[in-house]
Design a protein around this nucleic acid. Structure first.
Lengths: 213, 213
DNA sequence: AGCTATAAATAAAC
DNA sequence: GTTTATTTATAGCT
C-alpha cells in the first residue's frame, strides 16, 4: 500500500460521535460472485478499479521477472485500454493469429493489384516465396501496414489519450521497456453504433466503422 | 479463496508437537521490493505464480464487466504465454502499432517487387490509395499476413501447447468469449540463442531466429 | 506442487 | 476520489 499507510486511529478519537453511532463505518470488502455485474454504474466502477489493479499487477510482474507484457482491454463501450510493449503484441499477432479480417469473398475485387502467374500478390502462397525472401516479405508487410496505419489515422482522426503513467515506470524502463510514455493508453472511440455491442468493435468491422465518420 | 476454505484449527490439535515447537510454521507472506529478482529459480517461481494470478484477475475482470481482454507475456526465456481473445490483440495491433519491424534501410532490396510509379507496392503512400480501395487494401494485408503465418509455421514448426483452461471458462463463454479452447496458451520457443536475451525475441528479430532452425 | 501467515487488492460506503 | 473492513494473492518454506 504505497499511498496512505494505514494510520493508527487508536489515539485519535476524532469523529467520536461517528464511531459511537456506528462502530464499523463500512462492512468492508464483501465477497462477490464472479458473474456479470448487471448494474451499469457499479460495473463501470469495478472495471476502472480492477483494470487499474490488473495493470499494476502486470507492471510488477514485468519488473520482478524481466518479462515483457502487453494487455489490451475492450470495455463494453468499445473503449480500448492498453498496457505494455507494443512489440509484444505485434510479435504475438504475427505468430499466433492466422486470420485477421475475414477473407475476401473472392468476387468483387477492384482492378488494382498487379497479377503474377494469374494471382494477385496477396494471393500467392507462401510456398512460392523462397526462404531467402521472407525477410523482404516481412518488410513489405510492415510497409503496407504502416501505410494503412497512417491512412486509418487520416480517415478516422484517431484520438489517443495518455492515461496515468504505469505504476513502476522507472523500473520498467530499466528492463528496456519500450514506448515508455505510451505504456498505458486509452483511445476514445466515438464511432460506436447505438447499441452497446462491443463485439462489433472487433477486428472484422473496425475499418467500416472508421469509414462511416 | 475458492479452494481450501480457511479451516478453523482451534478444535483440531493435530500436529501438536509442531505447534508447540514452532507456533508459526512460516513467516507468511513477506513484503518484497518491486525490482528485478536476481535469483533465477526464485524468479521463475514468482513468474509462474504471478502470471497465474494475473490471468485469473483478467478472467474475473472479463466476466464481471463483460470486457474483452488479451494478455501476452514473454518470459526472459522467450516463452510466450497468452490469455484471451486474439481479436482484441489484432484490433489493437492494427490501430495502435504504426511500426512493426524496423523499416528497411532502402538499399539491399531484392529484385522481387513490381514497381508502380517507381515505387514498390509497399512503398506507396496511403494518400495514393483512394478511400474506396481501403478495404481491398486491408484484404491484401490480411492475405499477405496469412501467407506469412503459414510460412512461418512451415519454417519454424511452431509448437503450441494448451495450458490449463482459464479460471472462469464457463462464464467467459457466456459473454461470447472467443477461441474458448485457446484462451490460455503457451508456445515453446526452442530456437533461442545461448544468452538469455529475451529482448531478441521481440518483433524486429523473430524472423531471423526462425530461419536459423 | 502444498501450506501458512502476512501483504495487497478491493466492495461498500462516504 | 477516500476510507474501512474484509477477501484475495502470494513470499517463504517444505
Amino acid at each position: 500500500m504505497e499511498y496512505g499507510e494505514r494510520s493508527s486511529t487508536a489515539c485519535l478519537p476524532l469523529k467520536e460521535e461517528k464511531l459511537q453511532q456506528n462502530p464499523k463505518t463500512t462492512k468492508g470488502r464483501q465477497k462477490i460472485e464472479i458473474k456479470q455485474i448487471s448494474e451499469e454504474s457499479k460495473r463501470q466502477v469495478t472495471f476502472s478499479k480492477r483494470r487499474t489493479g490488473l495493470f499494476k499487477k502486470a507492471a510488477e510482474l514485468s519488473v520482478l521477472c524481466g518479462a515483457q507484457i502487453g494487455i489490451i482491454t475492450f470495455s463494453r463501450r468499445g473503449r480500448i485500454y492498453t498496457f505494455g510493449n507494443a512489440d509484444t503484441l505485434v510479435e504475438n499477432y504475427l505468430r499466433r493469429t492466422p486470420v485477421m479480417l475475414r477473407s475476401h469473398p473472392g468476387g468483387d475485387m477492384a482492378n488494382e493489384g498487379e497479377e503474377v502467374d494469374g494471382l494477385k500478390w496477396w494471393e500467392r502462397t507462401v510456398e512460392s516465396v523462397p526462404e531467402e525472401e521472407m525477410e523482404e516479405y516481412m518488410t513489405a508487410l510492415n510497409g503496407l501496414r504502416d501505410n494503412l496505419w497512417t491512412r486509418i489515422c487520416q480517415l478516422g482522426g484517431d484520438q489517443t489519450v495518455q492515461m496515468n503513467a504505469p505504476v513502476f515506470q522507472n523500473q520498467m524502463a530499466e528492463i528496456e521497456w519500450k514506448l515508455t510514455d505510451e505504456n498505458v493508453t486509452v483511445r476514445n472511440d466515438q464511432g460506436q453504433a447505438g447499441d452497446d455491442g462491443y463485439l462489433d468493435v472487433a477486428a472484422g468491422t473496425f475499418l467500416s466503422q472508421i469509414r462511416k465518420r
